[in-house]
Simulated assay, not measured.
Amino acid sequence: MQHLNYNHLYYFWMVKRKGSVAKAAEALCLAPQTITGQIRSLEDRLKGSLFKRVGRNLEATELGELVYRYVDKMFSLSYEMLDVLNYHKDESILFEVGIADALSKALSSRVLLSVIPSDGSMHLACYEATHENLIQRLREHKLDMILSDCAGESLKYPDILSKKLGECGVGFFSSNPISVGFPQCLEHEKLLIPSKHSSLGQQLHRWFAEKNLNVSVLGEFDDAAMMKAFGYFKRGIFVAPSVYRHDILAQGMHLLGETADVKEEYHVMFAERMIQHPAVKRLLDTDFTDLFAGLDPQVQDYDHRIAFTE
């Protein structure tokens, strides 16, 4: 067999990964007709169809699945090579991290600060989005690591490793005291809670049902900082990790109650290729017990300075 055209293989790989010619063309900044023509040339070369249409969707044929298994390894390795070269080519090592927007900014920053050397030898780049979006970016080699509140999605992909860093219970805070006992007091004012897309939001809804609480939700938030800001502006009861209770109380808020039945979890996820990245290695070796127990002095000092802005 003569030499294959790697551009044809790459276009096929992108269509299979993106699920359609239109999405692949958008990602590659090419016209859909160009992509279609290149794949037809590859099919002529391989003497068989790579895709079949099922309804409005494209699905790989048996030949397509076979070809994809090989080209996926080939292009994944090429991206891995670029990743390794990228964080070694400059004087400072690049460390690109995705942070789930449902997580506390203070805890997230403390986790990252624990692995960033103070000598300027590492350049940190943070990207905030939903957990699903971050997983996609990690698999596309656009991130080195993810901090998230759940690891379930990563279990679908054998090339992504994960580790639970820690967890902490949550407290319910309000600008006004409520004389009714906890947790029944949560029925007496509207709630500000994380969205159902987050692990914490799902846990809260289950907990409300288990406690037979007839709560009224004013708003659900993907961004924990926005939820907290609404609470500070006296718009309802908001939820926050218990490790921040002292600082939140210092801002004039009232603690209505706490529970360890609902936990904010922190997981780190990274591609297997990144296990040699110095920041990832350092993070995996770090003990965060004090941090999640609320005993970390750097977080306490940090919170006193940024509590209102978050």
Score class of each variant (00 low, 15 high):
E128P: 00
S20T: 12
A125G: 10
G181D: 10
F172K: 01
F238N: 03
I116T: 11
K23H: 11
F230L: 13
V15Y: 01
Y157H: 15
S195T: 08
V268D: 00
Y10V: 06
M145A: 12
K47F: 12
R137S: 11
L165H: 04
Y266A: 06
E167W: 04
S114W: 03
L204Y: 02
F182N: 04
Y302C: 03
L112D: 03
D223G: 02
V115E: 00
K23R: 14
V217M: 07
V299T: 05
R305Y: 07
L9R: 02
H123S: 15
M274F: 06
H254Q: 13
Q300K: 15
Q184D: 12
R235Q: 14
G48T: 04
G120F: 07
L46C: 10
D301I: 12
I135V: 11
S216K: 15
E220W: 01
V243K: 01
V54A: 11
Y244N: 06
T259A: 05
L191I: 09
G236I: 03
F51E: 03
L107M: 12
Y127P: 02
P278E: 01
L155E: 09
S114F: 01
L66S: 09
E62N: 14
R56M: 03
D287L: 12
E264P: 04
T286S: 08
T61E: 08
K89T: 14
L186Y: 02
K16E: 13
I35Y: 07
R273W: 09
D44N: 14
N5R: 08
E210V: 07
F182H: 05
S154H: 03
A25M: 06
G219A: 14
Y10Q: 06
K105L: 09
F233D: 14
G252D: 04
G171P: 05
S175M: 14
D72R: 14
I146E: 01
A125C: 13
K156C: 13
Y6P: 04
L192H: 02
R273V: 10
K73R: 15
D247H: 05
F95T: 01
V97G: 00
H88V: 10
D44V: 06
G152Q: 09
D119P: 05
N214R: 15
L191E: 04
K163L: 13
K228A: 06
M14W: 00
H267C: 07
E187S: 12
G169C: 09
L138A: 08
S175E: 08
C168R: 00
V97N: 00
Y87G: 03
L50G: 02
H123M: 11
D90K: 15
Q2H: 11
S108I: 05
K281R: 15
R282P: 00
V115Y: 02
P297I: 11
K164L: 09
E140Y: 09
L147D: 02
S195M: 06
L255Y: 05
E65H: 11
S162F: 11
S175F: 03
E167I: 05
I237M: 07
